[in-house]
């Protein structure tokens, strides 16, 4: 089902995506349920949720890299006119790293320790284009400079262990943008890094958005981090989208109790830290879901009717949430 009226210029449009864990041929758990999401041309879209909410799995399904026993069971993902889920492994491999690239999480372990940085950054180009080695080297140097790595000529010849965490993430970013993809999936690109470095990487991504034709899907557990970066934000909980809105609206007018709790758990400078809320309980296990609201066990507003399926409700414009609470 389409929640937000789609415009023709979307780069990616996911409709009704469900991903399940299967064992011995039958489904044993629901990891992602009925997720719909769209990303417009040159948009940065945030996908926010706790770890285990299924956001990374949802992103991986787009490029055909789901782990063993985890399968897309329903839904479509239209990318430039084709449904990504219907593609053969070989066809999806042609898209992966070329038209859709990934800035991986955990920058400190994402580069192969035995290969030089330049070679790793240039690898997508050598896989997907038939440019010569020297041409690729030139492009690599250009992009290393673009992600503000000083002295790229020297740096390209170094190994990952000679790079700091922030530098490794910059190199990975250069790798992702070097093939001029239409969509870049940034999967918690700052998690492993120091706070000051995080800010630098975010600033770099902002710069890059202005300088490329790419759209971004920015995955994070940190609402505060993405709020300034993203045009639109989807909040995910236990495999479902619970709320989505313009970036600023999520912060100023959160509707879903989960979003409110998330905002509550973002500490702010001018507030008394005693009022810092934490969300009680744990995220529900994928084996325990029923058709009702998946957040109700941890929700302070929970009522009997929460056990019924919750449709998306509009709050004006593109702001929707999966909860009966009006205001």
């Amino acid at each position: 089902m389409s929640i937000i009226g789609s415009t023709g210029g979307d780069v990616l449009e996911i409709n009704g995506l469900s991903i399940e864990l299967t064992g011995r041929g039958k489904t044993v758990g629901s990891i992602v349920h009925d997720v719909s999401l769209r990303i417009g041309h040159r948009e940065i879209v945030g996908l926010i949720g706790e770890s285990g909410s299924g956001k990374t799995i949802a992103a991986k399904s787009l490029i055909g890299l789901l782990p063993n026993r985890i399968r897309v069971t329903e839904g479509t993902a239209m990318f430039r006119g084709t449904d990504l889920f219907t593609l053969s492994p070989k066809a999806i491999r042609k898209i992966r790293g070329k038209a859709i690239s990934v800035i991986p999480q955990d920058a400190l372990h994402a580069l192969n320790p035995v290969h030089r940085i330049g070679r790793q950054v240039g690898e997508p180009l050598s896989i997907h284009t038939d440019r010569s080695g020297s041409a690729i080297r030139e492009i690599v140097l250009e992009y290393l400079a673009k992600v503000k790595i000083d002295n790229p000529r020297l740096r390209a010849r170094q190994y990952p262990h000679q790079f700091s965490g922030g530098m490794q993430q910059r190199a990975l970013t250069a790798m992702a943008v070097s093939t001029e993809p239409s969509l870049i999936i940034a999967d918690e690109p700052t998690t492993a890094l120091d706070v000051t470095i995080q800010a630098q990487i975010i600033a770099l991504l902002k710069d890059l958005r202005d300088g490329t034709e790419a759209s971004f899907l920015f995955i994070s557990h940190d609402l505060g981090l993405v709020s300034t970066l993203c045009d639109r934000i989807y909040v995910m909980y236990a495999g479902e989208i619970v709320e989505s809105a313009q970036g600023a609206d999520i912060f100023s007018k959160p509707r879903h109790p989960y979003t409110r709790a998330l905002i509550g758990s973002v500490p702010r400078l001018h507030e008394n830290p005693d009022t810092l809320q934490i969300i009680a309980g744990q995220i529900a296990s994928p084996f325990e879901h029923d058709s009702g609201c998946r957040f109700r066990a941890r929700c302070s507003f929970a009522e009997d009717r929460c056990a019924n399926p919750q449709p998306m409700r509009s709050h004006g414009g593109i702001h929707v949430s999966r909860c009966w609470i009006e205001d």
Partner: peptide
């Protein structure tokens, strides 16, 4: 199972080259 293998996969590398170029040397 190392993380950099996933990075390599996300570049669209073929399984053969994945093993030869990224896994085997390590």
């Amino acid at each position: 199972s190392a993380h950099f293998i996933e990075t390599a996969q996300s570049k669209g590398i073929s399984n053969f080259n994945l093993v030869i170029r990224h896994a085997l040397r390590n």
